[in-house]
Design a protein around this nucleic acid. Structure first.
Ligand SMILES: NC(=O)c1ccc[n+]([C@@H]2O[C@H](COP(=O)([O-])OP(=O)(O)OC[C@H]3O[C@@H](n4cnc5c(N)ncnc54)[C@H](O)[C@@H]3O)[C@@H](O)[C@H]2O)c1
Ligand SMILES: NC(=O)c1ccc[n+]([C@@H]2O[C@H](COP(=O)([O-])OP(=O)(O)OC[C@H]3O[C@@H](n4cnc5c(N)ncnc54)[C@H](O)[C@@H]3O)[C@@H](O)[C@H]2O)c1
Lengths: 211, 211
DNA sequence: TTTGCCATGTTAAATCTTTAACAGTGAATT
DNA sequence: AATTCACTGTTAAAGATTTAACATGGCAAA
């Protein structure tokens, strides 16, 4: 599957592929060699049809009556989602959330590694957090290039979000994941994803209220 | 707008309303009294049409050539999203992420308050984190009823996610927000929302790779 | 006053996403 | 050997969501 085909995969499918892989890795660790579409579906709270359709879209085909080969599917999803050499990630803002994330990601994926953290607080600069060194935010731009960092995770205080984003973009970042409640702006060539926990919580609250 | 009308609001609109309010509150704090649909759109990286359509759906109508009254819109979105009395929330698992969340939510919304945290670690039980007391997970079920907790946020270790979820459900929880990478199961009357940061990061990585 | 403009509100069309329907297939059963 | 069964793979339909198109209204400038 070449780069051009990949572009046609629906965004939602991409998200689910990541989730399928997470589930498959767990099954693999448990010694399971094959899995049915309806088993994956149950784990993810979706329908078996959707699982089969997603898997069809990436051109994989399972074994009749035995389901999908767990290992093969993991490898194939890796070919879709991962780059061969892997991508380097930086966390900007080493506060509660930044540290939690750095700790969470540690050793999770070989193809996505957090290679640097940044902060403006002199007490944090030079220290290591979950094995990741914290650098001065002033050096962000040069270190992005030097360490070939493609993705930045913004976890500074909301007031500094725009500033952190600007520095990342100027450093030549390719993708940004913003956990700040302050939306940031990026040029079209930078891919941006934003997430605010309060939105999720308010959504849950709304459905609790109405149901 | 009564409960029945509310049910017809699209899920995506609910999410955006939360985001609009977040932006509006900020504008309000800055002394802005009116805002145009295209201004909201710019902040949220969406189109002005979509903003107007969402606002139409909740039955609000702005002033021609002046846009929407910031304060009125904030109040109306509150009527949609919030309950009059507010809802109580519990954090289950006082690790890095649990503490980060508790700290983040502190005083953010008056209508959604974290009233308790739970853990199994004796060192944490009895302590306060960002003003929230940590209780023994063994007391979860009784405290949910006692403190009238409607929503649970799961931030325990992945292996304990199912167990924490089970306890929440048995305690009579109405909604769950699961930040564990391990999907959990709930009966149909409980609303469930799951989020994994790795999925977001892998999605960003995918679009970085293909663009 | 009249014309142009800029913004909202709404219906209709387009697009994206999920679900349904069903053909195909091969192992197990009789 | 024929039949049933339980799966996958695919196309078609339905449903959800976004975008386009345009009617409307009122301020401002000419
Ligand atoms: N804690 C959460 O669970 C949570 C959840 C959602 C969103 N958020 C958001 O994530 C962000 C971080 O949250 P937190 O709890 O870690 O906050 P925090 O205050 O603990 O950490 C913020 C860190 O950013 C650093 N910082 C501030 N300005 C900076 C700058 N200009 N350059 C470099 N570093 C800078 C600070 O020194 C600090 O280390 C906040 O915007 C918060 O609103 C937090
Ligand atoms: N740190 C992150 O940014 C991050 C991001 C996404 C998801 N997660 C997930 O969120 C969860 C928490 O992450 P963390 O970094 O805070 O982990 P952590 O290990 O720091 O904290 C886990 C906490 O849960 C408690 N716990 C474990 N089992 C329990 C049980 N049965 N009952 C009650 N309490 C129990 C532990 O005592 C500990 O305090 C993990 O599942 C992790 O995978 C974390």
């Amino acid at each position: 599957m070449d780069k051009n085909n990949l572009r046609h995969l629906p965004h939602k499918t991409i998200e689910r592929l990541s989730q399928y892989r997470r589930a498959l890795l767990l099954c693999h660790a448990n010694g399971k060699t094959h899995i049915f579409s309806h088993e994956i579906a149950k784990i993810q709270h979706i329908t078996a049809v959707q699982v089969r359709r997603d898997i069809m879209l990436i051109g994989y085909t399972g074994t009749l009556r035995k389901g999908y080969n767990v290992e093969e599917l993991i490898v194939l999803i890796g070919k879709i989602l991962d780059t061969e050499e892997g991508l380097n990630v930086a966390v900007v803002g080493v506060g509660n959330l930044g540290r939690a994330i750095t700790n969470y990601f540690r050793g999770k994926r070989t193809k996505l590694s957090i290679v640097a953290a940044f902060d403006k607080n002199p007490d944090k600069i030079g220290k290591k957090y979950s094995g990741v060194e914290c650098f001065d935010i002033a050096d962000l731009k040069s270190l992005i290039k030097q360490k070939d960092i493609s993705i930045g995770i913004i976890t500074v205080t909301p007031e500094s979000a725009a500033e952190a984003c600007k520095a990342l973009v100027e450093g030549g970042i390719k993708g940004i994941l913003n956990y700040t409640p302050k939306p940031v702006n990026v040029p079209p060539h930078v891919y941006l994803e934003e997430y605010d926990m309060i939105t999720s919580l308010e959504k849950v609250a709304f459905f609790v209220k109405t149901h």
